[in-house]
Design a protein around this nucleic acid. Structure first.
Length: 285
DNA sequence: CTAGGATCCTGTCAGC
DNA sequence: TGCTGACAGGATCCTA
């Protein structure tokens, strides 16, 4: 689930509440969700909260870093004495009583509790030495983020996957960091490129627009607040949906395209649900 | 090296 | 009501 903008939103939202706080106790409710010795984090003060791609990094004062990856359904929910914050996969757990069935790790802090929830258990908290974070296999292989990536570098990375559908290529974190299923669809719509196009068939102009698309769509999401309790609004008993604040195609099948009015469709590309406007994004050039 | 598919896990929803 | 299969904001591992 959570892609770069969601993790960035969590970083920003959580920092103010947990930075400087001491972790007094940790409860691991699911073994596979926490990798490393508990003793390394208990009684440690949180020094900093950082982000690399879709990974959140929580630095502790003893030189240990918790690498938190939310994968598909991870959430971080902070319940403090005076403040609450929740981000990640948007569900009712943002508001309801915790811990619940999906709670995997509980961090007790001096000023509140931080719950790591994760329905599908794909996410994890992994302990690393802060100095070794850069050598972690996943972190090491990450490409640059859209704002740091030059056209030339993006093009070069795309060329390694000439025959793959372009959507599969930009989901690869070694090609560009932070893009997931939402922003892949949104960026391709922005660039007016069909998700099934062979990567090698894109023109320079399309590559340029696609890179700009990743920047624009992810920035728009960060600016609108990502997936937090504030954007997971409920109106008249209906479930809120932060995607509606910025998404043009994602989960908007059967709705009119805002450019041309054609119905947005949902197809399957590279094994993932994929949304596009069949008029704005032509498969044949 | 790349490409494509299966896999980890839980939950929900559509269709019979 | 109950079953069954498809699918889900991710990334890795296996095979060809």
């Amino acid at each position: 689930m959570p892609e770069l903008p969601e993790v960035e939103t969590i970083k920003r939202g959580l920092s103010g509440f947990i930075k400087g706080a001491r972790i007094t106790r940790v409860s691991v409710l699911c073994e596979k969700s926490f990798i490393g010795p508990l003793e390394a984090v208990e009684n440690q003060k949180i020094k900093d909260v950082r982000r690399k791609g879709k990974a959140l990094l929580v630095d502790l004062e003893n030189g240990i870093t918790m690498l938190i990856h939310l994968r598909m359904t991870g959430q971080l929910i902070y319940r403090g004495k005076n403040n609450n914050f929740a981000g990640g996969h948007p569900t009712d757990s943002f508001f309801t009583e915790l811990p619940n069935k999906q709670t995997r790790v509980i961090f007790e802090l001096e000023n509140g509790k931080l719950f790591f929830n994760d329905q599908r258990k794909f996410g994890f908290v992994k302990l690393l030495e802060t100095a070794e974070v850069g050598n972690d296999k996943f972190i090491k292989s990450l490409a640059k983020e859209p704002w740091d990536m030059s056209f030339e570098e993006f093009k070069k990375n795309l060329q390694r996957h000439k025959s793959q559908p372009i959507k599969a290529t930009i989901l690869d974190q070694k090609v560009i960091a932070g893009v997931g299923n939402i922003y892949a669809d949104e960026s391709l719509f922005f660039a007016k490129v069909h998700p099934k196009r062979e990567t090698g068939s894109l023109t320079d102009e399309e590559i340029k627009n696609l890179l700009e698309g990743t920047r624009k769509t992810m920035q728009a999401s960060i600016d609108s607040g990502g997936s937090t309790m504030a954007t997971y609004v409920k109106a008249d008993g209906t479930k809120g949906d932060y995607l509606r604040l910025f998404a043009k195609v994602f989960r908007r099948e059967n709705e009119p395209c805002e450019n041309c009015g054609t119905e947005i469709i949902k197809i399957r590309v590279a094994g993932r649900g994929t949304h596009l406007c069949p008029n704005c994004q032509r498969e044949e050039k």
